[in-house]
């Protein structure tokens, strides 16, 4: 039967081995994989400024990016491809909330300056270029709404 010291050894050895493996894989991910992606070299100051705005306004508190965030508002990884630059920019600069005239969900009216809205667009464009192992998956069907 297993003794307490064997159990302790199991715990310590397991923890150390798997921590070392994990750190090694993290290193490989960052240095050998992510750093070598062509899109990692296209992170311009505008993209970084957009990321600051994205975080500074907690956009993830409603939306998702790379599928991460909250589940209240649409996933934005491919938003430029889906809605076009003009729509996104217009919405970000709008002084009135999205959904204002409905009783339902609304988006905060940020009323960004054109410069800031452009930074966010650049950020979304960059996000759209990242290789995500097939996410978001293309829906299998395309159905239409009956009116």
């Amino acid at each position: 039967m297993l003794t307490k010291s064997q159990a302790k050894l199991f715990f310590l050895a397991g923890t150390i081995i798997f921590s070392v493996l994990f750190l090694g894989l993290s290193y490989d991910t960052q240095m050998n994989h992510v750093a070598n992606q062509p899109y990692e070299k296209t992170i311009t100051p505008a993209v970084i400024a957009g990321k600051h705005l994205w975080e500074g306004n907690n956009c993830m508190g409603c939306h998702t990016i790379f599928g991460e965030g909250a589940y209240y508002a649409p996933e934005l990884t491919k938003v430029i491809e889906r809605r076009g630059e003009g729509y996104v920019k217009g919405l970000l600069m709008s002084p009135t909330p999205w959904g204002e005239h409905t009783s339902g969900r609304k988006m905060v009216a940020y009323g960004f300056s054109e410069e800031d809205a452009q930074y966010l667009v650049e950020y979304f464009k960059w996000i759209g270029t990242v290789d995500l192992n097939g996410f978001p998956a293309k829906p299998k069907y395309k159905i239409e709404k009956n009116n």
Partner: peptide, 10 residues
């Protein structure tokens, strides 16, 4: 790490 741009071995 599946869908955030990390390598596919994840």
């Amino acid at each position: 790490y599946y869908y955030i741009g990390a390598p596919s071995y994840w």
